[in-house]
Structures are given as structure tokens and as C-alpha cells.
Amino acid sequence: MPRVKSDDGTITFFLAFGANRQMCRLTTTFNTQKQAFSYLQKHRTEFERMARTRLASGELEDGIVVLSML
């Protein structure tokens, strides 16, 4: 389940792979977290695929997979 971060339009969520969890952050241009969360849910599969690709290639910022809007 995604967690809402204090920044507007930014959502953090965890990507599950096996017994491990990887924190991911999605930054959007939406004004509210509710809008950002709705956007994440609508495109969840695509964001999870992108996050797995970035994790596999080691593209992390301070241990977090950073994503932005499609």
C-alpha cells in the first residue's frame, strides 16, 4: 500500500520482490496527494515495471527508486 509523503503530489510506495521491499518515490505535477495517488493506481503496472528495471540496473538515489510522471 502506498504511503503519502508530506510533499504535495509526491507519493512513496514499496515494490515487493520476494521477501524484500524496495522504497519507490513518484513525483507528479498534481497539486494534491489524492490526485497523485489516483494517478499511481491508474498506472500501477507501468510504474512497477519501470521501478523493477531501475532497481535491476542500480538506478537508485539514496537507496530509493525515483520515478516521475509518464
Rank of each mutant, 00 (worst) to 15 (best):
M1L: 10
P2A: 03
P2M: 10
R3I: 06
R3Y: 09
K5N: 05
S6I: 09
S6E: 14
D7G: 03
D8K: 11
G9D: 07
T10M: 13
I11E: 02
F14R: 07
L15I: 06
L15Y: 05
L15D: 05
A16G: 14
A16V: 14
F17T: 09
A19F: 14
N20V: 14
R21D: 15
Q22I: 13
M23S: 09
C24Y: 02
C24T: 01
R25Q: 13
T28K: 02
T28I: 09
T29K: 15
F30I: 01
F30A: 03
N31E: 15
N31H: 11
T32N: 07
Q33W: 00
Q33D: 08
Q33M: 00
K34R: 14
K34N: 10
Q35M: 12
Q35A: 11
Q35H: 11
F37T: 05
F37P: 00
F37E: 10
S38N: 12
L40R: 07
L40I: 08
L40N: 04
L40Y: 11
Q41A: 12
R44M: 12
R44P: 08
E46N: 10
F47C: 06
R49E: 10
A51V: 00
R52N: 06
T53N: 13
L55F: 10
L55S: 01
A56S: 10
A56R: 13
A56W: 01
G58M: 01
E59P: 00
E59W: 02
L60Q: 04
E61W: 02
I64W: 05
V65G: 00
V66I: 14
V66M: 08
S68R: 15
S68M: 14
M69F: 14
M69Q: 14
L70Y: 05
